[in-house]
Simulated scan of single mutants.
Amino acid sequence: MRKIVLVALLPLLAGGCISTVGKVVTAPVRIVSKGVDWTTTSQSEADRNYGKKMRKAEEREGKERKAAEKACRKNPDDCRPYDGYRAGQSRDD
């Protein structure tokens, strides 16, 4: 009789244990996948970062061009075409 009662109550008693065991078993997979998400960059993140980088480069070029034009207005004899930083080009070009 005890065995029947124990077997009948086992699913109720083990319900929480089974879900806990499932969480423990899948924890390493979830931890690794979260780490991969943190270390990799999605295409949308890469596009956003590239756009931000280009806007900063264009802002830098604009400031340098403005300073070159101002210097040219102050001293027109030393005025040459702008040959400073250009957004989108590396320094090696």
Results as ranks from 00 to 15, higher is better:
residue 68 A to W: 10
residue 54 M to N: 02
residue 93 D to T: 09
residue 44 S to C: 01
residue 7 V to Q: 14
residue 80 R to N: 07
residue 32 V to S: 08
residue 14 A to E: 01
residue 82 Y to W: 11
residue 7 V to Y: 04
residue 31 I to K: 10
residue 19 S to L: 09
residue 31 I to F: 08
residue 83 D to S: 11
residue 18 I to C: 05
residue 68 A to F: 03
residue 76 P to K: 03
residue 69 E to G: 07
residue 39 T to D: 14
residue 6 L to A: 08
residue 1 M to P: 10
residue 74 K to Y: 11
residue 46 A to M: 08
residue 37 D to N: 11
residue 8 A to N: 03
residue 4 I to W: 10
residue 38 W to F: 12
residue 44 S to Y: 03
residue 26 T to M: 07
residue 70 K to D: 08
residue 66 K to C: 06
residue 92 D to Q: 00
residue 49 N to R: 09
residue 85 Y to M: 03
residue 24 V to T: 15
residue 40 T to A: 04
residue 41 T to S: 11
residue 66 K to G: 12
residue 11 P to T: 04
residue 71 A to L: 05
residue 55 R to F: 07
residue 86 R to Q: 08
residue 24 V to W: 13
residue 75 N to T: 09
residue 12 L to T: 13
residue 81 P to E: 04
residue 40 T to M: 07
residue 57 A to Y: 02
residue 85 Y to K: 02
residue 92 D to K: 09
residue 52 K to N: 13
residue 29 V to D: 13
residue 1 M to K: 12
residue 88 G to Q: 01
residue 28 P to F: 00
residue 83 D to K: 11
residue 80 R to E: 11
residue 48 R to A: 11
residue 59 E to R: 12
residue 43 Q to S: 11
residue 93 D to I: 07
residue 31 I to V: 15
residue 40 T to N: 06
residue 44 S to K: 09
residue 64 E to A: 05
residue 3 K to M: 05
residue 19 S to K: 07
residue 21 V to D: 07
residue 87 A to R: 00
residue 90 S to K: 08
residue 9 L to I: 09
residue 13 L to C: 10
residue 53 K to D: 13
residue 40 T to H: 06
residue 45 E to H: 01
residue 88 G to V: 01
residue 57 A to S: 14
residue 33 S to L: 14
residue 85 Y to L: 06
residue 25 V to T: 03
residue 15 G to F: 09
residue 17 C to L: 15
residue 29 V to Q: 14
residue 21 V to L: 15
residue 8 A to D: 03
residue 40 T to I: 04
residue 23 K to G: 04
residue 22 G to V: 10
residue 45 E to P: 00
residue 37 D to E: 15
residue 62 G to R: 04
residue 7 V to T: 06
residue 48 R to H: 11
residue 10 L to P: 00
residue 34 K to E: 15
residue 91 R to F: 13
residue 42 S to K: 06
residue 68 A to N: 02
residue 82 Y to H: 07
residue 6 L to N: 06
residue 19 S to N: 10
residue 45 E to M: 02
residue 54 M to Q: 04
residue 4 I to R: 03
residue 17 C to E: 14
residue 22 G to S: 12
residue 29 V to L: 15
residue 8 A to R: 05
residue 70 K to L: 13
residue 3 K to T: 07
residue 77 D to R: 05
residue 45 E to D: 06
residue 62 G to N: 09
residue 12 L to A: 15
residue 26 T to R: 05
residue 18 I to V: 14
residue 41 T to M: 14
residue 37 D to M: 10
residue 70 K to G: 01
residue 6 L to D: 07
residue 58 E to V: 07
residue 84 G to A: 01
residue 53 K to L: 14
residue 5 V to M: 08
residue 48 R to C: 08
residue 67 A to L: 09
residue 62 G to K: 03
residue 9 L to H: 00
residue 91 R to D: 09
residue 35 G to A: 10
residue 2 R to V: 06
residue 82 Y to K: 02
residue 57 A to I: 00
residue 21 V to E: 08
residue 88 G to W: 00
residue 62 G to A: 07
residue 24 V to Q: 10
residue 16 G to C: 12
residue 41 T to H: 05
residue 6 L to E: 06
residue 93 D to K: 10
